[in-house]
Simulated scan of single mutants.
Amino acid sequence: MSWLDEVMRIMPSHAGAGDTVDWDVIEASWGTRFPDDYKEFTAEYGGGAVDDYLELLTPEIYVSPGGESSYSGMQQESANAEDVWRTSRPEVAEVPRLITWGIDSSADILCWLATDSDPNKWPVLVWGRGDAQWTQYSCGMLEFLCRLFRAEFDECPLSDLSLWGTASPRFLHWAEEQRLRKAGIDPWTGESDPFAGMFGD
């Protein structure tokens, strides 16, 4: 069983989930290939959230009228991760390439340490806001998620135990979450959202 199969067993995707990504364009813009398991996850799940706690990012490119491209979300969070690295490790002269694929409500940052020429060998690197330190995990994104859900690390890698050992985490694609909110439904409880429409679209 692949790591994607195991993630899907623990956390099924839903109708309409998944994003179509032109990886040739994305990888040319970022100047690097992305891990195969991440590409599989993106096709099946896409960008969204797990239990309204962990946000999983996808790279996007926007082309301005002037022809300059920039990234949303993932690029900004990757820049944030590198800023945190500089602040937390001032004794290290060079900042390694960090690419953020997840952030959570505890302000933890989940990255790849993207220094190997083979992206399938990139380890996961987590900035734990709670203990203010970086911790490296010798596994890819999907294995990391599986081991988080199954509580297989020595301790929870995140600052909150919301997803630690959870039997049935729920993933919601950002577009479905947005659709439910516009319909006046709290996407995480299924109940009427008393704040629907109060803050615009």
Rank of each mutant, 00 (worst) to 15 (best):
L4V: 06
R9P: 00
R9D: 05
M11H: 08
M11F: 03
A15G: 01
G16N: 12
W23F: 13
W23A: 13
A28V: 00
R33M: 12
P35Y: 14
D37L: 08
K39M: 13
A43H: 10
E44T: 14
Y45F: 13
G46A: 06
A49D: 13
V50I: 15
D51W: 05
D51T: 08
L54P: 10
E55C: 01
E60D: 11
S64T: 15
E68I: 08
S69C: 08
S72Y: 05
G73L: 01
Q75Y: 01
E77T: 01
N80R: 14
A81M: 11
E82A: 14
W85C: 01
W85S: 04
T87P: 00
P90T: 15
I99E: 08
I99H: 05
W101E: 09
W101F: 15
D104Y: 06
D104L: 06
S105T: 10
S105P: 00
L110A: 08
L110R: 04
L113H: 12
A114G: 06
N120T: 03
P123W: 07
R129N: 15
A132H: 02
T135N: 06
S138W: 07
C139D: 07
F144V: 05
F144A: 12
L145D: 07
R147C: 07
L148N: 03
F149M: 06
R150E: 11
R150W: 01
E152G: 09
E155I: 11
L158V: 06
L158P: 06
D160Q: 12
L161E: 12
P169L: 11
A175F: 02
R179Y: 01
L180N: 03
L180S: 09
R181K: 13
A183G: 02
A183I: 00
W188S: 09
S192C: 03
D193E: 08
G197F: 02
